[in-house]
Measured scan of single mutants.
Amino acid sequence: TYTFKVDNKDQAKKAAKWAKKLGLSFQIEKHGDTFKITVQ
């Protein structure tokens, strides 16, 4: 499981695209202005 934080929606979208490309499941949680992405 890999967790990282991004500062904006664009970065969150890029991370989601990357995870989908690799066939991984992911969750994006919004914490105020940051997004926490968990990829597994």
Rank of each mutant, 00 (worst) to 15 (best):
A19D: 00
V39G: 01
G23K: 06
D10K: 14
E29H: 07
T38Y: 05
H31Q: 13
T1H: 10
I28Y: 04
L22A: 08
F26C: 13
K17S: 10
A19I: 11
T1C: 15
G32C: 06
A16N: 03
F26S: 03
N8L: 04
T1P: 08
K30A: 09
L24M: 08
I28L: 06
Q40W: 15
D10A: 14
A19T: 01
V6N: 01
Y2S: 03
W18G: 02
K17F: 09
K17T: 08
K9V: 12
T3H: 08
G23R: 05
D10N: 13
K14R: 13
A12E: 01
Y2G: 02
F35T: 02
K17M: 12
I28V: 09
K13Q: 10
E29P: 00
S25T: 11
T34F: 14
T3M: 07
Q40C: 14
E29D: 07
A15K: 03
H31S: 12
Q27P: 00
T38M: 06
Q27G: 04
Q27R: 13
K20T: 09
G32D: 06
G32I: 03
K17C: 13
L22R: 13
K9L: 14
V6W: 04
E29S: 09
K21T: 08
K20F: 08
A16C: 14
A12P: 01
V39R: 00
E29Y: 07
A16D: 02
K5D: 10
E29A: 07
K36M: 15
G23I: 02
N8T: 14
D10C: 14
F35D: 00
A19M: 14
T38K: 05
K21W: 09
K17A: 13
F26N: 01
K20H: 07
K36A: 10
E29I: 09
F26K: 00
T34E: 11
I37H: 00
T34G: 15
F35M: 04
V6S: 03
K14H: 07
K5S: 15
A15G: 02
D33Y: 06
F26T: 04
T3C: 15
A12G: 03
I37F: 08
N8G: 10
K9N: 06
T3I: 11
F4W: 11
V39L: 09
L24W: 07
S25I: 11
K20G: 04
Q40M: 13
I37N: 00
K20E: 07
D10P: 06
V39D: 00
L22E: 04
K17W: 11
I37P: 00
A16P: 00
L22P: 00
T1N: 09
H31P: 01
V6E: 01
L22H: 13
Q27F: 13
K14I: 09
H31K: 08
K17P: 01
K13R: 13
T3S: 10
I28P: 00
N8I: 03
E29W: 07
Q11G: 07
D10W: 15
I28G: 01
E29V: 11
D33M: 08
F4H: 02
K14S: 07
H31D: 15
K36R: 12
G32E: 07
Y2T: 04
K17V: 09
K14T: 06
Q40H: 12
Q40T: 13
L22Y: 10
K5P: 05
Q40L: 11
F4M: 03
A15T: 06
D7C: 15
S25M: 10
K30L: 07
Q40D: 07
L22M: 12
V39T: 03
E29T: 12
K9F: 14
F35W: 14
Q40N: 11
F35V: 03
T3Q: 07
L24K: 04
N8Y: 03
G32K: 06
Y2E: 02
D7E: 11
K13W: 10
D7F: 14
A19L: 15
I28N: 01
K5Y: 15
W18F: 04
T1K: 12
Y2L: 09
Q27Y: 13
T3D: 04
K5G: 06
K30M: 08
G32V: 03
F35L: 04
D7G: 12
S25K: 12
I37Q: 00
W18I: 05
L24R: 03
D33V: 07
F26I: 13
D7T: 12
Q27T: 14
I37L: 04
A15M: 12
D33H: 08
K21N: 09
K30T: 07
K13V: 10
A16F: 10
A15D: 00
A19V: 04
K36I: 15
V39S: 01
D10L: 14
H31Y: 11
N8K: 05
V6M: 05
K30Q: 12
K30E: 07
K13C: 15
K30Y: 06
G32F: 05
A15L: 14
V6I: 06
Y2P: 02
A16V: 12
D7L: 11
A19H: 02
Y2R: 07
G23E: 03
T3R: 05
T3V: 12
G23Q: 04
V6Y: 06
V6L: 10
D10F: 14
S25R: 11
K14L: 10
Q40I: 12
K13Y: 10
K17N: 09
F35P: 00
K17E: 11
Q11E: 10
D10I: 13
K36Q: 13
W18R: 04
Q27V: 13
K13P: 01
K21Y: 07
L24T: 01
T3K: 04
Q40E: 09
F4Y: 05
K9A: 13
S25G: 06
V39W: 05
A12R: 04
T38E: 03
K14M: 10
